[in-house]
Design a protein around this nucleic acid. Structure first.
Length: 568
DNA sequence: AAGGGACGCGCG
DNA sequence: AAAGCGCGCGTCCCTT
């Protein structure tokens, strides 16, 4: 009788052949297989459900599999896991920290065959993919986790991070269903007809003329910040910058058309016709997601500005014929995560309905929903002045546990310490520059300027660590939500729907199409919309229980089923 | 000519 | 009406 492997570790063996080592739950070897590329794909396809595949970089291996139409259930991404364990305060892992090569983490090209042609790159870091190095790193990671006092949470974090890596590749492969017609229609209505190559859109040209007239300078340059600032000064607007918020404070006929001009030039340059051609040439927008790309554990993106899509263009996200979108975002994710982490039952009580901010008003902590929002954001970001800073003390009185948690995180950061999220991602230690500034200020010959500088950089770091614990833990909730939802969607029956342009893995199957910190979009066959909506809600509940057990707090969703992703 | 920094602004 | 966290990207401008 054969034992089913717990892990299947993938690497390059003799002569570069793909080699898979099957391990049992104790990490003992069950079998070793050498494959060519085709045989490897067949082996994965035959065992896609059962096994946790262990590999150096999901971007490399899973992209190859998805291209061949193969989806898998689980993996362990050594690159992402290494990054977490290397800095986690809960992992005492000297061997892992000493390992060379695993902290490289460059773009995908550097890990793939592209590197062969990147000769002038010279010392471009390449992740180890040889079987020996992959096995050794996996062993180091298992040791670090097993020895951790927070083993269960770290295991959860590594599993969630790795699932996120799978989701990121699937999102890229499927793409965001994008209506070029709707997008072009918005551009036309806002900017005017598409100009000839290199031309200025009509509405922008008109507004530019109005602005120059108001400045009394028909040759004023509006696109150069220093020149615009000088032109404003000549026209009697004593602005110190040209940002929107400051300009809005001045009462001058140039302000309104100038702000509109800036709005339109922004749309044209960031998401205009050129963007449409480059990023959505065939009805799909395919951003590259970068899991763990932000220090806090949030995802980043590269290419196309996926995480900055203006709300204005959301109507261009449009389901294929016979399909629909399930659009869901979490209401007040970060304050809810904070309440659960701190075990703050008063804040949890305010969150009991669907609107945490309304709950705060109901408890008499603040007088309006807007105040509640400003105060809560100020507490999580470390505001000290303005309306926001003024309201924070009221929150400290009403929610001492939640506020105590972020205040403590700030204090640790100001003192140069490290803070850690709910599941175990730690903030980076302060850099040598930061420490030097603090030391210089504490020396006997420190000037007043030295002390001011040191205090400011300490406060800056305090605000960073204050926010780190909340933003990072919220990212963990979102990862758990994504991972659980991904599994539920895969379990839905294959639908009788027209094949979408989403590639072989996603034809006739509901799939994630977009993710943005606390929001997801699922592209679903119309007949499955309700089932998908249920899965999205159940996944949120599952994530909450997984992270916070029985703590009495919901994470309610704002969920809509509709053909486009506009809010309505 | 290429690259880095500053600025501004889109998103959460 | 905003000053306080985390990002990516386009533009301009200056340096190399």
């Amino acid at each position: 009788m054969t034992t089913a492997p717990r892990w299947r570790v993938v690497g390059r063996g003799e002569g570069g052949a793909i080699t898979v080592v099957d391990l049992d739950r104790n990490g003992d070897r069950l079998a070793v297989h050498a494959f060519d590329d085709d045989a490897f794909r067949r082996a994965v396809a035959a065992d896609a459900e059962a096994t946790r595949w262990v590999w150096h970089d999901t971007r490399w291996w899973y992209r190859m599999l998805l291209d061949a139409g193969i989806r898998i259930s689980r993996c362990h991404d050594l690159r992402l896991s290494h990054a977490i364990l290397r800095t986690s305060a809960w992992a005492d892992a000297p061997a892992l920290r000493a390992a060379r090569g695993w902290d490289a983490g460059g773009p995908l090209e550097e890990a793939g065959p592209q590197a062969l042609f990147d000769l002038d790159g010279g010392d471009v870091p390449v992740l180890p993919e040889s079987l020996d190095e992959v096995l050794a790193e996996f062993e180091r990671q298992r040791e670090a986790v097993t020895a951790s006092p927070q083993r269960a949470r770290l295991e959860l974090l590594l599993a969630a991070e790795s699932a996120g890596a799978l989701v990121a590749e699937e999102l890229h492969a499927a793409g965001v269903p994008w209506s070029r017609e709707v997008h072009a229609g918005i551009l036309d209505a806002t900017l005017g007809p598409r100009p000839l190559a290199g031309g200025v859109p009509a509405r922008i040209a008109e507004l530019g003329a109005v602005v120059r007239a108001a400045l009394g300078d028909d040759r004023a340059s509006l696109d150069s910040q220093p020149k615009l600032l000088r032109a404003l000064h000549r026209a009697g607007v004593p602005a110190t910058s040209t940002n929107r918020w400051e300009l809005a404070e001045y009462d001058h006929p140039v302000i309104a058309p100038l702000l509109e001009y800036k709005k339109l030039t922004r749309l044209a340059s960031a998401n205009g016709w050129a963007w449409l051609e480059e990023w959505a040439p065939a009805g799909r927008f395919r951003p590259v997601y970068v899991p763990g790309g932000v220090v806090t554990g949030r995802w980043a993106s590269s290419g196309g500005g996926a995480l900055q899509l203006p709300r204005q263009l959301r109507p261009a996200v449009r389901a294929d014929p016979g399909w629909t979108l399930v659009v869901a975002d979490v209401a007040q994710l970060e304050p809810r995560v904070l309440a659960a982490m701190a075990g703050d039952t008063a804040l949890a009580a305010a969150a009991r309905g669907t609107d945490l901010y309304a709950g705060m008003v109901g408890e008499g902590v603040v007088t309006s929903r807007q105040e509640a929002k400003i105060a809560m954001l100020g507490a999580m970001y470390g505001a000290t002045t303005g309306d926001s800073g003024r309201l924070v003390p009221a929150l400290r009185r009403a929610y001492p546990r939640a506020m105590g948690l972020v205040d403590e995180a700030a204090a640790v950061g100001e003192a140069g310490g490290v803070v850690t999220t709910w599941l175990g991602r730690s903030s980076p230690a302060p850099g040598s520059g930061w420490q030097r500034v603090q030391q210089e200020a504490s020396g006997a010959d420190a000037s007043a300027a030295d002390e001011t500088r040191a205090r400011r950089s300490a406060r800056d770091r305090g605000r960073f660590t204050r926010n780190f614990v909340v933003q990072g833990s919220a990212a963990e909730w979102a990862l758990a939500w994504l991972a659980d939802l991904r599994t539920r969607l895969a379990a839905l029956p294959v639908a009788d729907a027209p094949a979408p342009a989403s590639g072989p893995v996603f034809a006739a199957r509901a799939h994630l199409a977009f993710f943005l910190h606390d929001e997801i979009i699922v592209h679903a066959p119309q007949e499955q919309a309700e089932a998908v909506a249920v899965a999205v809600r159940e996944a949120a509940d599952a994530a909450t229980r997984l992270l916070f057990g029985g703590f009495p707090l919901d994470f309610p969703l704002d969920l809509q089923i509709r053909a486009d992703a506009a809010k309505g």
